[in-house]
Nucleic acid binder design. Structure first.
Lengths: 340, 340
DNA sequence: CGGTCCCTTTGCAACGTTGCAAGACTTCGG
DNA sequence: CCGAAGTCTTGCAACGTTGCAAAGGGACCG
């Protein structure tokens, strides 16, 4: 029942294949009674256009790809949800894939399978640098999320990571913290997000006259809760442990908070914690998590705008570099020191 | 550079289109030097097969659809991650869509756009009942997640919700709780999951000789943290509030825990909490969350097995009803009463 | 009444791929 | 040296759709 073609419908309705196609595509010049007859036949046979054929003919699939390192990471799944919703308004369907941040797999998606299906790609790279991206970007419209390539490889959307990190750190300084750690360095990745956040963190400390201390800058293998917890535990072994920590994402922060509590510390009395991403968990955790909230809805919408422009053939050259807004959301985890 | 066809490659290599196709598809009888020449041309032109054409010709797309109510709900995003990974092993790509649980949209996905692209569908319905599902299931292989249709509409995968709810409730009873509430009834949905968990909950109470009390059974509009928090607040206004609560998913539980703390209660001393799904947040929350953990990996793998069987033409008739295992993971939130 | 224009319908070709079956050439056994 | 059984290569057609261009028919204008 699902594999009826225009030919079948045409036979039933007693018209040509082309006329049925005209009805399906809402071509205006179709006689009312013909249209009615065709529509009856369409209904009767439960006709659905074969999208492969249509795609082949039109050269468009109506699919866009979202390629992220981890779809089950709350930040990415929230972005994915927004993107799917925003795509619907443009009658686009979203194909989601995850790379695990593996460069080889990222390259494969960029050049390979996904590229054949989709009209455009929204891509959040971890492992690939600008050079690799350029080669993959040749074929189809590409929007990068969260990576500051700044060299015009492709359209690019991100928050101002340095400014955001500055705000987060200054907030901690302003609430009286003296010894502020950072969790989330990822020197092994070509992705620059962590580097930029670190830059903002260091700049704030310097501006406030705090001594810089590399012991307080903790690198992690991944951005998950266990990594945050492990980082916190290592910080607590220091002779002079921190009284605040800026985590480069919320999952690290939640893990760090948990580890701090397990060690008998009270958050925020003994330790203030700030995260990044504003995932939903942080709003309901105990204590609730102070965090930098990127405008995820804007990220999704602007990404689709970029794709649409490329697909329409406008602006085929210069790459855009879009900065979406963010704001620091102060919650319990960074309350005043000393008081419970 | 990305729109080179077999014809272009054939011209460069000085062979027929068909021979190039043979090389691409690893047809064994190709002379070594011909193969070398063709492969050089493929490389040179950076040939990628046009998947729309291949799909049209073969009648297969290599895409499977995952349709869930909310992709940003941790449970669904974790299942999605597993599914994408498992699909990779079969060289399938996953197309993700979300319906918001809206029956109209669920029907649209089932009958409409997605169905044209994909070879099979993994579907987690909220709004559609068995009757609607049957009509949509005609065309393509379909696997249902989490819905106990039990009438052979389509293959179906779920945990034993009743048994799991019994275990959760018995655990609370066994740890000395007397007045156990339930949060998560959804009488407005045709989805039966909540009904089954309620059934298990009631059965346990009955078996233990606890009086049943409808005041303790709280319905929710959605399964999110705010709903759990609101439900908890309403429970706390009762003349005789509960000393334990079984939440039908972890998000409700996390919201409920948060609301309980805000009201000055200590979890687990004053209130024990058990959730369902074992999302990662619950492992690192404070206190960590006791929960029923379904085997999500098995869900993904078995779902793909079902699709593969249908696609291979085996077992075209009888629908499978697969029960995946689960286990109760006891953490801090349901520790002994009375002690902090 | 002839010509022009518009409305409606249609046939043909093409998108890039692969199934089919036959053709060209080689090898081998008798 | 012939026939059979391979190995290798190819042309043709088809998948279902839509762009193009033209044909048939009616209405309207001069």
């Amino acid at each position: 029942m699902g594999d009826m073609s225009l030919k079948d419908v045409a036979a039933i309705a007693g018209v040509s294949v082309r006329t049925v196609s005209n009805v399906v595509n809402r071509f205006p010049h179709v006689a009312p009674d013909t249209r009615a007859r065709v529509e009856r036949a369409l209904e009767q046979l439960n006709y659905r256009p074969n999208l492969a054929a249509r795609n082949l003919r039109r050269g468009r699939s109506g699919l866009i790809g979202l390629v992220v390192p981890e779809i089950d990471s709350p930040y990415f799944s929230e972005v994915a949800a927004h993107l799917v919703l925003a795509a619907e308004e443009r009658s686009w369907t979203v194909l989601v894939d995850q790379t695990g941040g593996d460069p080889a797999r990222e390259r494969a998606f960029l050049e390979g399978a996904a590229a054949g299906f989709v009209d455009g790609l929204v891509f959040s790279p971890w492992g690939l640098g600008a050079a690799d991206l350029r080669r993959g970007a040749e074929d189809i419209p590409l929007v990068l999320l969260g990576e500051r390539t700044s060299d015009g490889v492709a359209d690019h959307i991100a928050v101002d990571n340095v400014a955001a990190a500055v705000e987060a750190t200054e907030h901690l300084i302003g609430s009286g913290r003296r010894r502020i750690a950072a969790i989330g360095l990822q020197p092994h990745l070509t992705n620059e997000t962590a580097r930029l956040r670190l830059e903002g963190y260091r700049a704030s400390l310097r501006a406030a006259g705090h001594p810089s201390d590399e012991q307080l800058e903790i690198r992690v293998a991944a951005l998950h809760r266990p990594d945050g917890a492990a980082a916190m535990r290592s910080l607590l072994t220091l002779p002079e442990p921190p009284d605040a920590v800026f985590c480069f994402n919320d999952q690290l922060a939640l893990g760090a908070m948990r580890a701090a509590r397990d060690a008998g510390l009270d958050v925020p009395r003994d330790l203030a914690v700030v995260g990044f991403d504003d995932i939903e968990d942080g709003r309901y955790s105990f204590p609730s998590l102070t965090t930098v909230s990127p405008d995820k809805w804007a990220i999704a919408v602007r990404a689709l705008e970029c794709l649409a422009e490329r697909l329409d053939g406008k602006r085929s050259e210069s790459a855009r570099d879009i900065v979406v807004s963010h704001r620091l959301i102060v919650r319990e985890s960074s309350g005043p020191a000393g008081s419970p």
